[in-house]
Simulated scan of single mutants.
Amino acid sequence: MTLTLAPSFAAQSRTQQPYVLIVDDHISSLKRMSQIIERAGHACETAESASQAVAICDRRRPQVVVTDLAMPNLDGCGLASWLGARYPSIPLLLMTGQMLDARELVDLRRRFTAVFPKPVDVDWFLECLDRLMPAHGFSSRP
């Protein structure tokens, strides 16, 4: 008789744990946002392009997607359109360093749950993210 052990709890919880997907073609911004999100107690994955983000979403659906607006090939709005058609319940947070006029901002707020100018106000960002992510048993924030 051969016994098969179930995967460890850590392995199971990592694959099933809700996570934030961060998409930005600027590696330094990607790393900074990843550190901020992980320090706040949330799991995250990163993508350096919208096409890489699409592949990640096809493997495992994120709880929240945080994306930059200006990226080569498929930009943040294009990614939002793809996600909205395929996974309409995923909240989308937009980060942008672009100067936006009032009309552009209104249009973006229709597509995205929140729009954050760069540099991102970390407290405001984490407050928004905490509302969108399920409770995670602990918090590194006071």
Rank of each mutant, 00 (worst) to 15 (best):
A10D: 13
Q12G: 12
Q12T: 11
Q12S: 13
R14Y: 11
R14G: 07
T15F: 06
Q16I: 00
P18I: 01
V20M: 06
L21V: 10
L21G: 02
L21N: 01
V23N: 01
V23T: 07
D25L: 09
I27G: 05
I27K: 14
I27F: 12
I27C: 07
S28V: 10
S28Q: 08
S29N: 14
S29R: 04
S29Y: 10
K31D: 05
S34I: 00
S34E: 07
Q35G: 11
Q35W: 08
I36F: 12
I36Q: 04
I37C: 04
I37L: 07
E38R: 14
E38S: 09
R39T: 08
A43P: 02
A43C: 15
A43D: 14
A47M: 07
A47T: 00
A47P: 02
A47S: 09
E48C: 09
A50K: 13
A50T: 05
Q52W: 03
Q52V: 07
Q52S: 08
Q52K: 15
A53S: 10
A53C: 14
A55Y: 07
D58Y: 06
D58I: 05
R60W: 07
R60E: 06
R61D: 05
P62R: 01
Q63H: 11
V64W: 02
V64M: 05
V65S: 03
V65H: 05
V66R: 00
T67H: 03
A70H: 10
A70M: 15
N73I: 13
N73A: 12
N73P: 03
L74V: 12
L74N: 05
D75K: 11
C77H: 04
G78P: 02
G78C: 11
G78L: 14
L79W: 05
L79I: 08
L79Y: 10
L79D: 04
A80V: 05
S81A: 14
S81G: 00
W82M: 14
L83G: 04
L83Q: 02
L83D: 09
G84F: 02
A85S: 15
R86T: 15
Y87I: 09
P88Y: 03
P88E: 09
P91I: 05
P91A: 02
L92N: 02
L93P: 00
L94E: 00
L94K: 01
T96P: 10
Q98S: 10
M99R: 12
M99H: 13
E104H: 11
E104A: 14
V106D: 07
L108T: 08
R109F: 08
R111T: 11
R111M: 12
R111K: 15
A114V: 00
P117R: 06
P117V: 03
K118W: 11
K118Q: 14
P119N: 08
P119Q: 01
D121L: 09
D121V: 07
D121P: 08
D121F: 05
V122Y: 00
D123E: 09
D123V: 12
W124M: 03
D130Y: 01
R131A: 12
R131C: 05
R131E: 13
L132P: 01
